[in-house]
Design a protein around this nucleic acid. Structure first.
Lengths: 211, 211
DNA sequence: GCGTTGCGAAACTTTGCCGTATCGAAAAAC
DNA sequence: GTTTTTCGATACGGCAAAGTTTCGCAACGC
């Protein structure tokens, strides 16, 4: 393959096609990818530099500045690529749906890409308020609402206890899988076994007490 | 008080007392304190600067560099000061002891000082392996073992289910309180009510299912 | 008092990044 | 083939932050 590049023109209108060499869509993609990678590796946006992105993407800084005027614009566009594959709310037993949800969380928490979101959301509440707000809107909130709906549904069907404390229950679900994945990261904590989601689901549902 | 300073000589032997003005123990303490404060406020060691430490401590940079050759050395010494007030394992009903444990975790997670540990441990698994290892040894491990002992004890007395999955159960306990405190930090998530530890304990123990 | 060492402040030096500009080559339209 | 625009690479001045050294003064043993 000699030239996989395509015209970056998004809209169908071919009318205003400017003369000259078209912008490389491949370069653009490489920039986005590099940005996401580097965000995933760093802890805050402060230590994210355009130069590093350019180097990682194998691209000149010019190519970046020609498209985005500020670092924040670039990051916003990059995060937009991380389209959240919203967990589809299916019907079925509560346990199955919880397992599905946990498995999604586990996979995302293990993925460098999706960790970008957590890094930024965690790092600076006050530092990049605009960006954090955007992340919460796009990624955190849908997942929280999906989980809340899941739990409420379980209460309605009688599969869950009626006096469920929703905020605490949500923290139990999310916190458990997050912590498990995290602690597996720094050594101890247990292997990320195949059926992890099921083990977690069983224990979260059953609690600690004997039956 | 004109001179509260004391000779920084730790060992009793006064033999090799060097000539000249002795190093100020007060300055040293101020440096350590400032270091811990700043770590608690920042998210990673990268954004921790000697200048900021010196400014916060009201101390010249020289005074810091004279004692520690690298930033990591300083951080290691600072963390050594954070003696972990190991949760005393008492007797009594499991729920009471769990509430005590959770309350300690909640208070520590809310405290700037103790947050140092989490920040560093979370931020870079691979960045400062030496430091992370030290933190795990000094702080994380004792708490994990205390919790493990707590849970095992509950199983022995029959207060907890016999087939408890220890790693998962531990993740449930720690993850829930951590996530709750964290999410309370970025807006949503619920208030840190007074009886939070009890609410968490009840739900963790009972699980989601109806009785 | 004298020599020695520590002290804080400030100046100096280094480093890293930014944002722009320039260059030769490359890729499209005409 | 010519024109136009983009490409990656490199260089530049500027800037801010952090590390290093300098300096005058303070504290201690002798």
């Amino acid at each position: 393959m000699t030239s996989t590049d395509e015209t970056a023109s998004v809209d169908g209108t071919r009318a205003a096609r400017p003369a000259g060499r078209p912008r490389s869509a491949k370069a653009e993609k490489a920039i986005i990818e590099a940005t996401l990678d580097l965000i995933g590796e760093s802890t805050s946006l402060a230590e994210l530099s355009i130069e590093a992105i350019a180097a990682r993407a194998g691209v000149g800084k010019t190519t970046i500045y020609r498209r985005w005027s500020s670092k924040e614009d670039l990051v916003v566009d990059a995060l937009a690529v991380l389209k959240s594959p919203l967990p589809p709310l299916e019907d079925g037993p509560f346990r199955d749906r919880l397992v599905t949800y946990l498995e999604i969380m586990r996979r995302e928490a293990s993925d460098v890409r999706s960790r970008c979101v957590m890094n930024i959301a965690m790092s600076g509440y006050d530092r990049d308020p605009h960006l954090v707000e955007r992340i919460r809107e796009v990624t955190i909130r849908p997942r929280q609402e999906a989980l809340a709906a899941l739990l409420r549904r379980g209460v309605e069907t009688g599969e869950l206890r009626a006096d469920l404390d929703l905020p605490v229950a949500m923290a139990t679900v999310v916190g458990t899988v997050m912590w498990y994945v995290k602690s597996a990261g720094f050594g101890e904590g247990g292997q990320l076994s195949e059926n992890l989601a099921e083990r977690l689901a069983d224990h979260i549902m059953a609690g600690l007490l004997p039956r």
